[in-house]
């Protein structure tokens, strides 16, 4: 973890609602993908964002980068409020905020050579002298573990792990201070996954970039992240230091999520909390606490209002649950 605890990103009461067509009949419904989410991210920190599919974690990542318009709320990046920035203003900032996508097969232009792909941020943001750029690309490729012979190759000549290395190189070459990593390893094989995770960790150690690391795999998140936020149905239900969260999960959903992961250990038999049912649709979320339909500690209080995040130990372990004793 970095000693420099300066705030890099602050998100306040962020909402992202999508209007979706009704199946039958006229009119539109509102899908609340992200609802009232607040968190901060410090320089050089890795914040994990976990949750099941459809809980809004990817939407949150993209909204923070302003790839989606913000419905309500505030995003402050590096001291400047970027909530109402337009496309042109965003472009100046984008070299400091980059993204690594999930599917390395879909996120590289099949007609561009690897060299061109990695160089494109340099051209877009006008970084470095023109004649130096190719050297910068070579250096970057070396950093991500690819030899310079890949410069003139096309994406289809490479394996998934190598492509993901290219995606990382492209995100890192403009020397950003903040990178959103949207499930960067879930499309990769187990043995390759470890290589890419190690690479991302090395890059982070070296350049002190801050990651917003989105993943559904808690063991991966534990390996890379300093702090972890757990999302459910568009809300952050718990946020804590990584070790603290695993040692002392407080929210019933976090507890269930942790107990649901199969552990590769044959001696350990755990008491598993099996959640009943499925995640409700974000178009018709339950009244009150979003988790109440599957919660084991459901009571009348849960119907009343959506619980807010509260600091429970004075150390930044925040939980949103009305049944805290």
């Amino acid at each position: 973890m970095s000693e420099n605890n300066q705030e890099l990103l602050r998100v306040e009461y962020l909402k992202k609602h999508f209007k979706v067509k009704r199946k039958y009949g006229a009119g539109k419904q509102v899908l609340k993908a992200v609802d009232n989410v607040s968190f901060t991210l410090n320089r050089g920190e890795v914040l994990g964002l976990v949750g099941e599919s459809g809980c809004g974690k990817s939407t949150l990542g993209r909204t923070v980068l302003k790839l989606y318009d913000i419905t309500e709320g505030k995003v402050v990046f590096d001291g400047t409020d970027i909530t109402n920035y337009n496309f042109k203003q965003m472009r100046n900032i984008r070299k400091n905020m980059q993204m690594i996508f999930q599917d390395p097969y879909a996120s590289l232009n099949p007609r561009m050579t690897i060299g061109d792909i990695v160089m494109s941020p340099l051209n877009t943001f006008n970084l470095g002298e023109k004649k130096d750029r190719i050297d910068m690309v070579c250096e970057m490729l070396k950093k991500v573990g690819l030899s310079t012979e890949y410069l003139y190759k096309l994406p289809h000549e490479m394996s998934g792990g190598q492509r993901q290395r290219v995606v990382i190189a492209r995100a890192m070459i403009s020397n950003p201070s903040f990178v959103v990593c949207d499930e960067p390893v879930s499309a990769l094989d187990v043995s390759v996954r470890a290589q890419v995770l190690n690479l991302m960790k090395d890059m982070q150690d070296e350049s002190q970039v801050a990651y917003l690391f989105i993943s559904h795999d808690l063991s991966t998140v534990k390996y890379v992240c300093d702090r972890i936020a757990v999302m459910y149905l568009g809300h952050i239900v718990e946020i804590a230091e990584s070790d603290e969260l695993f040692k002392n999960p407080v929210h019933p959903y976090t507890q269930a999520l942790l107990s649901a992961i199969p552990i590769p250990d044959v001696d350990q038999k755990r008491n598993r909390i099996i959640l009943q049912g499925d995640v409700p649709s974000p178009i018709n979320p339950p009244q009150g606490c979003p988790f109440k339909t599957r919660c084991t500690k459901y009571c009348a209080r849960c119907d009343e209002k959506i619980p807010a995040l509260e600091d429970i130990d004075g150390n930044g372990h925040m939980v949103a649950c009305c049944n805290l004793d």
Binding site: S159, V190, S191, A194, Q195, N198, K201, S219, I261
Partner: peptide
């Protein structure tokens, strides 16, 4: 051995994952 070493463990803290070089 490599396969078992390359998965992050939930129940212990891993400083660095051991990897299998190359690809299938």
């Amino acid at each position: 051995i490599g396969l078992l070493d390359s998965i992050p463990k939930l129940n212990q803290n891993t400083e660095r994952l051991l990897t299998i070089d190359g690809t299938v």
